[in-house]
Design a protein around this nucleic acid. Sequence first.
RNA 1: CGGGGAGUGGCUCAGCCUGGUAGAGCACCUGGUUCGGGACCAGGGGGUCGGAGGUUCAAAUCCUCUCUCCCCGACCA
Length: 592
Amino acid sequence: MHRWSQLFIPTLREAPADAEVASHKYLVRAGYIRQLAAGLYSYLFLGQRSLNKVMAIVREEMDRIGQEFYLPALHPRELWEASGRWTVMGDNLFRLKDRKGADLCLGMTHEENMTEIARKELRSYKQLPQIWYQIQSKFRDEPRPRSGLLRVRQFMMKDSYSFDIDDAGLEVSYRKHRATYCRIFDRCGLNYLIIEAHSGAMGGSQSEEFMVYTPAGEDQVVSCASCKYAANLEKATSKLEAVQELAPEGDGKPLEVHTPGQKTIEEVARYLGVSPKNKIKTLALMIDGSTGNGAHASTSRGVVVLMRGDHQLNEAKLSTALAGKETRPMQEEEIRQLFKSPAGFLGPLGIDWSKGLDDVAKPILLVDTALQGRANLIAGANKEDYHVKNITPGKDFQPTGYADLRSVATGDPCPNCGSPLRMDTAVEVGHIFKLGYKYAESMNARVLDKNGKEVMPIMGCYGIGIERILTAAIEQSNDENGFWLPPQIAPFEVVVTATNVSDEKIRVTAESIAQSLESAGYDVLLDDRDERPGVKFKDADLVGIPFRVNVGKKVTEDRVEVVQRSTRQSQDVSIAAITDYFRQNLGPGRRT
RNA sequence: CGGGGAGUGGCUCAGCCUGGUAGAGCACCUGGUUCGGGACCAGGGGGUCGGAGGUUCAAAUCCUCUCUCCCCGACCA
């Protein structure tokens, strides 16, 4: 039996000054966590208890499809060299040296470690499929930890990895995870949705994210109210309405027009009396050369992006199109040097664009798919105060390539059904991802197939942020007095509040009610502190326990009050019927 | 990393501009009165004012450097 009077539950009247989001404020105020440093938190009694419940659910569900491992958090450099990520991960990877001077790092994730095991141990297709998982601390030197437990440098992750002999097998493993994740998030009481995700620089493979709507989130989710379409902003697209093309002027060939002082899209469009939709937006960007040594060194490279005049560039999409390269806006001087054009009048004509990303000597020209098939557009003339009409992509200039680079905006038509799209912020609690052969390839994992031929196993990886489940649950359910958790993940299901412990009858009754609820298998916290009732009620409201039993003056009538935290509805229940009440409202006690 | 803000008992903050004995509320300890929504009275403990250097007779306060934390932007569970 847990007695509040003997526990360490340091509740705070006021939120710490540096907490902004609800979950952060309440986790601290309710005594769940304390901060150690930026992005590092200690989980106290209530916090750890709740996380343990989350992990128990995750474990129970994962055990139905996979096998639990526990891998080291400390990894030798060689492991990460093998996959190439020792350099790729840059500053995000925590690095250290052992006493002998050997390089080590703290695992941000465990693809390498798992693949290493697979590489050494898996020999035959007969051993496949495999699903291996673990629940373990991950370390990431985030550039900016934030929002309490939402983005931290050390956190618990359930990560799993699937190994299959072929695509069909991967599909099965992926489906299993998807279904399991749904069960996990359902059991944790989260209101989530599954969205198509940006699959990062590796591209191609399928990836979905499990999101919970909350203004505290860091992700933008685009969704359709009419159909099921939902995607990450980095991935989302929308239907393009047809644009009225301009009639060709003169002989239909590119035609320079004088546009004195007109630089922006809007100015030029207004000046020429056309819609921005008929204008090409030209963005000059730069890939900075790496300062790395030897093999990895590269030179800076210009990238020009063409968008429809009224469209916005999505940097994540651009980065994907550039195989993961980051860009920055080009400076005016750089534009002048590279393209002999004044900034503001840059256009695609007359420049020798590279034929592919590997063609490093020339600048890259990427054109958004919204411009593919368009005609008679207007762009800069690479000359002060001049623009060019009658430009048709593919005819008047040859881009390096076309790509979907456009950011979806609120109200754009859904790509499936055409209804207006909406955009919401959300937090990612899980991610499932078809990895493909990336690690099998780089780390040289091979098995023999039916025909005795060596093939690479195909992999999937799947993650759940443990703390984020708690955080999302709190973001989902809080008010000015505190928060309430779904009973399945609350540190206790019921708090029994003895309103006045100096009243013998109340004290004894509270004690016996707590006792019998506990015997019935519920997690009960008995508030037996010598405090005034107000203090206890405030604390009970604060700490996230979904039900409260008030044991007060009505004990003389053999009655107590049960208060549901979420609705604040209170109901008198006879003491004899208290266990039944919870059987009806909570189901049978889990520990029976 | 770029931009903005903040560091003063455990917590929330005042004091700083205009240098002169370090404060309030809450929390904590003791005694008493209380006991259904963060009680009251009396007494008490606790702070090198983030750190270093400088200016000054004198620095929480002015100057320089530095560390830490938070927020906004590029990454991710």
